[in-house]
């Protein structure tokens, strides 16, 4: 049995199938999960201070970049590492997300296995 890790991961993803896959995988790894289906819900749950945020950029109600910016503006970004999960083709934004607004990583979803994403999470959380 996978031992439980006392870390909360907030997954903000509007696509249900992808959200479910991520959720299941992370649960299997013993992590605690918070989920949000749109930008507004996402921002609300960020304020609950998870240990890490998996942030999709293409969100209804509030785009992912905005959440990132907000986190950056009020210092949340320093405490909560953010991994951007994006679709290919948004590279224009990548530099800004990483360099300006402080995201820790920028992953193109279709290029990564769930395992790959988990590895990144573990690295950032040092677990």
């Amino acid at each position: 049995m996978m031992k439980k890790i006392n870390k909360k991961i907030l997954v903000i993803e509007d696509e249900p199938s992808l959200l479910n896959a991520l959720k299941d995988k992370l649960k299997q790894e013993g992590l605690e999960i918070l989920t949000a289906k749109d930008g507004q819900e996402g921002w609300r749950k960020v304020c609950q201070k998870p240990d890490l945020v998996l942030l999709d950029l293409m969100l209804p109600k509030m785009p992912g970049e905005q959440i990132l910016k907000l986190m950056n503006e009020n210092g949340l970004i320093k405490k909560i590492p953010v991994i951007i999960l994006s679709v290919k083709g948004d590279e224009a934004n990548m530099q800004n997300c990483l360099k300006v607004w402080g995201a820790k990583d920028y992953l193109i979803k279709s290029n990564y296995t769930l395992e790959g994403i988990v590895k990144k999470i573990k690295k950032l959380l040092k677990i």
């Binding site: 696509e15 199938s17 992808l18 299997q28 679709v87 296995t113």
Partner: peptide, 21 residues
Amino acid sequence: HQLRTPLTGIKWFSELLLRDK
């Protein structure tokens, strides 16, 4: 673009399937 999402879904779910703990 539109194809990407379902494809990613299939990719991840088949990954989960294969794990088969």
